[in-house]
Design a protein around this nucleic acid. Structure first.
Lengths: 217, 217
DNA sequence: GAAATTATGTACCGTACGGTACGGTTCGGA
DNA sequence: TCCGAACCGTACCGTACGGTACATAATTTC
């Protein structure tokens, strides 16, 4: 939240327009994202770019944070959960996550982060990770723990349970998209996969009706 | 197999040495993988590089195929499976797959493929995908189907079952490593995660003892 | 053992791109 | 109306790198 707030008002409207231009260039992967191309697209001068963002990497980092600052979806209230509410919330999380990783924006930013991670400097990669995988984890864990507190789920380690859910939802989608596989991700497909993943998660971690034994030794 | 054979004898020993040098440079991510650096490392001239492999992309593609040609692990015999054999085979697959995606080589090659996929030309990405995700799929599916034929597993769609297994095994490991996350992947951790994933897979797709109803509507 | 083939290493070229400099323009304030 | 700050557009610089040319050495072939 505070991250989002700082990212939101850290830049002026004009600067946000520039960051949007960078995003646009990243998503439209056709041509290389050079500083000249950015300046052209944003109708600003390269000098201004460097004045505002330091260097090219600073500009890319700012773009990642800017995109992250608007992705935050509303959290879920974790009180008075019943089974169907929990299921719905998990399914909504799954739908949201699948939509995000299937979006051209996410694909482009992850590619940038991965490329940077391969070039020694791991700052961007870590940033993408923090706003992707780890952000979704921190948002989902409270829901899982609320489910456990209400006797709907049974697990020992929240992190392990979350990672299982993550795997059931994401499967091979992200790596295939990152590697350029044409993978149709229609809204209907996403909804179906989210429902399947949620069902499977309940099969693995759903608590028996009357008692609360722990799975996962 | 035929792929591996062609890749194996497509190049001379000297050329394989060059490809090994490329791999070495890719894995040691410190410095950029320039053609000059490759020539220096391989003690050959740039002109030879271009004569043998066409251009830089051809060299990288050859490297991917060369690495892929050596990774093929022995297949499993799918006849006369009992439950414990199936479990062991699945666990071995999981261990193998986790070891592969955790290896510096796999990380480096996937990064290259992803970077290329982001630059329009998707050839390398597709190649990495074919020798990674899809190769493991083609190797594992016969085992799953043999398990079903022997009444040990219950599923309708082999692809769906495989992708679930893939997700349970891989979870967030690959994306985290690709983005530069330091994620300790000791042999013991891998063995434990492989066992957990296999157990979860049986919980989802294991056939009931006496009958064979289908899961997954 | 000469001729031919092949490979090495170095030097070179063209270009793309990150980063900087600077003249011209807009705009807010006194 | 003038001043200064911010900014645009363009031109420019240095370097890194993909790709080529060439002269020299090694290896094969006859």
């Amino acid at each position: 939240m505070s991250q989002a707030a700082t990212a939101m008002d850290e830049w002026t409207e004009r600067q946000k327009d520039v960051l949007d231009a960078v995003l646009d260039l990243l998503v439209t992967g056709g041509d290389a994202v050079t500083t000249a191309a950015i300046a052209r697209k944003a109708n600003c001068s390269k000098e201004t770019l460097y004045k505002w963002f330091g260097d090219r990497d600073g500009l890319l980092a700012a773009t990642v944070r800017w995109q992250a600052s608007r992705v935050r979806a509303g959290n879920f209230d974790a009180q008075h959960l019943d089974a169907s509410q929990l299921r719905e919330s998990l399914e909504a999380f799954a739908v949201n996550w699948l939509s995000v990783i299937s979006s051209r924006t996410s694909i482009a930013l992850n590619r940038v982060g991965i490329s940077h991670a391969g070039s020694g400097k791991s700052g961007l990669g870590r940033m993408v990770l923090a706003n992707g995988r780890f952000a979704i984890g921190e948002r989902l864990k409270p829901l899982l723990e609320a489910g456990r507190a209400n006797g709907l789920l049974a697990f020992d380690d929240t992190e392990t349970a979350f990672r299982t859910f993550f795997g059931l939802v994401g499967r091979d989608v992200q790596i295939r998209l990152l590697l350029g596989d044409r993978l149709e991700t229609t809204e209907a497909e996403i909804a179906r996969d989210a429902a399947r993943a949620t069902q499977q998660f309940f099969a693995l971690y759903g608590a028996p009706q009357t008692q609360k034994p722990t799975r996962e030794g």
